[in-house]
Simulated assay, not measured.
Amino acid sequence: MKLLAIVGTNAPNSYNRKLLYYIQRHLKNQADIEIQEIDQIPLYNESMTNGKEPQIVKDLN
């Protein structure tokens, strides 16, 4: 099973991030868990996108 886990905070000492990495380590035989960060994703601003998504958003997608 392949899963994507998204760390939903920019905080450097996030308990959620620590928990996701713990889960990834301890379930490595049951699931392939890829962890992605949101720290490089800009806040949504429709006037700045002009209908185009930033490259970092495309990469995550």
Rank of each mutant, 00 (worst) to 15 (best):
M1I: 04
M1Q: 04
M1W: 02
K2R: 13
K2Q: 05
L4E: 02
A5W: 02
A5P: 00
A5I: 00
I6N: 00
I6H: 00
V7L: 00
G8H: 05
G8W: 03
G8Q: 06
G8C: 03
G8E: 07
T9F: 01
T9Q: 01
T9N: 02
T9G: 01
N10S: 09
N10Q: 14
N10V: 09
N10A: 13
A11R: 15
A11P: 01
A11N: 15
P12I: 03
N13Y: 07
N13C: 06
S14A: 05
Y15H: 13
Y15D: 13
Y15E: 14
N16V: 08
R17S: 15
R17M: 08
K18A: 15
K18Q: 13
K18C: 08
K18T: 09
K18F: 05
K18M: 12
L19R: 10
L19Y: 12
L20N: 04
Y21M: 07
Y22S: 08
Y22G: 03
Y22K: 14
Y22P: 00
I23V: 15
I23Q: 06
I23S: 03
I23F: 12
Q24Y: 10
R25K: 15
R25A: 12
R25E: 15
H26A: 11
H26S: 14
H26F: 11
H26P: 11
L27H: 14
L27S: 14
L27V: 11
L27W: 12
L27A: 11
K28P: 04
N29S: 12
N29I: 07
Q30P: 04
A31D: 04
A31G: 01
D32V: 07
D32H: 12
D32R: 08
I33M: 04
I33P: 00
I33Y: 02
I33T: 03
I33A: 06
I33N: 06
E34F: 10
I35P: 01
Q36R: 15
E37H: 13
E37A: 14
E37M: 10
E37D: 15
I38Y: 06
D39I: 11
D39A: 11
Q40P: 02
Q40L: 08
Q40S: 13
I41E: 01
P42N: 07
P42T: 04
P42H: 09
P42V: 03
L43C: 10
L43S: 13
L43M: 14
L43P: 09
N45G: 09
E46C: 02
E46I: 04
S47M: 11
S47C: 08
M48V: 09
M48I: 08
T49E: 15
N50S: 05
N50I: 01
N50C: 05
N50W: 00
N50T: 00
G51D: 08
G51H: 07
G51S: 08
K52M: 10
E53R: 06
E53S: 14
E53M: 12
E53H: 11
E53W: 05
E53Y: 09
P54M: 03
P54D: 05
I56F: 04
I56N: 07
V57L: 07
V57T: 05
V57F: 04
V57Y: 02
K58D: 09
K58W: 09
D59M: 03
L60H: 01
N61F: 07
N61A: 11
